[in-house]
Design a protein around this nucleic acid. Structure first.
Lengths: 336, 336
DNA sequence: CTGAAAGCGCTAACAT
DNA sequence: ATGTTAGCGCTTTCAG
């Protein structure tokens, strides 16, 4: 375990120069840098992050906080962020808040404050003013993904437009009876995603001159099963069966497709289905959906954060996340 | 940002005592400890992990290395590990190796060596002797999940018995024509999981006096689509259609169920299907499967590791991971 | 059981 | 462009 001293000796320079050569801060001649770098790699020298962190106040470690790692979306955001960070020489320290209020509090009052991280990415978390200011007091930059947090730059998906796009796809195919499977009230905490998506759906209907029919709106829990159950209700009703369904997630949309099949209805001939996400299963089920790009979201958050930390990175100016309609085989004009 | 000095002052003791009181190492009287603790919490003092790490050589941070975070299994193992670590006051630093050989090398020759972590959990990675000894030279304990690594304690699932259990479930229901959808050669690197599961399948058949028929063995890529395609082949063949299918993962098993449906075959009446994993979708598809418990696997790895680090934790003695047959509606006696 | 003081290994003025 | 040196904020001997 060689130390900086040995590298300095071997390279015939001072430890300060070694530090400068290896970290890239301060002036070092090309020549010296090369000498130092080869000395370091010959000795297998790697800086001690604790020593460097103590001396400089920078750890090259970013905290990433998620509500539930085992969910497709979060795992992908984290994966994207981790990859981008690693490429820049940063470590990723993960905080998964599945353990309830006490765990969340301990993360924010203890773990994030012990100066292990230079900055924090908060995914889909509505941070309290206290949580934000504790971090700001420590001069830790903070960026959010998924919804507005006061005083924090946040990457947001325009859920209204996403829903409107999905629904408009159906109206443009001349569907008139379009159902919506959205999220229940229990998912409306934090950033009101279910309500916003529902409003987008309604707006698209309004644009097409279609009256809103509450009987065509169901709520579920974002799972396949929830979508299945809701779709059974919608499609089983003898009168007024919808010819199109907009589900607020791919999982629910896939549930709806399976429900249609079980009722002997053909997708898309009898009923068209659109989802949101473009998750792993969407291509297999040939699902038309509005894609969002969680990995890229993680990368963008990293760019934003590192730019704030003063790394030479073009700071993303657009904080609105991209989305895109992916048309596959689950939608078509209504039959007859 | 109070420092240890201020806490010491407020509590009327030396910084050494504060350190001992807060870290729990060394003797401190009950009374003093209480005084120190309240002084610390009143001041909002949290130790600086860099300073503490530099002075003590311990970071209270564990590195977790996975091949692909966005996969159900890995996300769950990491989630289990993170939860267990957080409870013990440890941070989790994540390394996701999706970026290929260069990334892997940089993680092992650089990131893991800069003394940011006290120990490493390697999930489903066949570490080279060099990788292992680099870590051992730094006195970093290492535990593996998923396959044997020389000189490293590793939690292993007995894939042979898992496959045998799944297949025996079918033979015990008196199926005689049992197909297997396994993993292809490209998944046989690292720990030879596909081969081992196939041997378990064959062993169960042998026990039941059933001859092995290569026409009933297909390989796929562990996805729904792969399972679907393989099952279509198996179930579409006019002669010799199997009455049971053992798929080496739930995703492939679900693909097989969907293939059967598309052929107009009923599950389980015309064909029974068993998977491995008990993943999130398994209950919805009413899939009989051999469950493994990734979250618990992560927790067990943490217990093993922290015991090696000298934390007061009962060291798990059983390094073989539990599994369990979960019988749902996708299997029954063959009809006729 | 507690205090004094010497580092832990590096970085960042400051000087040259 | 490089060297000198004083810390960074703790932990841990060693004394008492």
């Amino acid at each position: 375990m060689a130390g900086i001293e040995e590298v300095a000796q071997k390279a015939g320079v001072s430890t300060a120069t070694v530090s400068r050569a290896l970290s890239g801060r301060g002036y070092v001649s090309e020549r010296t840098r090369n000498i130092v770098q080869s000395a370091a790699s010959e000795l297998g020298y790697v800086v001690s992050s604790t020593a460097s962190g103590l001396a400089s106040g920078r750890t090259r470690n970013i905290g990433v906080v998620v509500p539930l790692l085992s969910h497709w979306y979060f795992a992908n955001v984290v994966e994207g962020a981790e990859t981008a960070l690693l490429r820049r020489g940063y470590d990723t320290t993960l905080y998964n808040l599945t353990g309830g209020e006490a765990e969340r509090r301990s993360v924010f009052t203890h773990f994030l404050l012990r100066k292990r991280v230079d900055a924090v990415i908060a995914i889909n978390l509505e941070l309290t003013a206290d949580e934000v200011s504790a971090l700001h007091d420590l001069r830790k930059p903070l960026v959010g993904i998924g919804g507005p947090i006061p005083d924090v730059p946040t990457l947001e998906l325009d859920d209204f437009q996403v829903a409107k796009l999905a629904t408009s796809h159906l109206t443009s195919l001349e569907h008139r009876r379009i159902a919506h499977i959205g999220g229940g009230r229990e998912f409306d905490v934090d950033f009101h995603l279910p309500t916003t998506r529902r409003r987008g759906y309604e707006s698209a209907l309004a644009d097409a001159g279609i009256a809103i029919d509450d009987a065509l709106v169901r709520t579920a829990d974002f799972t396949m099963k929830g979508g299945y159950v809701a779709a059974k209700q919608l499609l089983g009703s003898p009168a007024n069966r919808p010819t199109g369904i907009f589900a607020a997630s791919d999982d629910m949309a896939i549930g709806a497709i399976l429900a249609a099949r079980d009722l002997g209805l053909s997708v898309p001939n009898d009923v068209s289905v659109v989802g949101v996400d473009d998750n792993q299963q969407a291509p297999f089920f040939d699902l038309t959906t509005v894609a969002q790009f969680p990995k890229r979201q993680g990368e963008t958050a990293v760019d934003l954060l590192l730019a704030e930390l003063g790394e030479s990175i073009a700071k993303p100016t657009e904080l609105t996340l991209p989305f895109e309609l992916v048309v596959r085989g689950s939608t078509s004009r209504p039959q007859d």
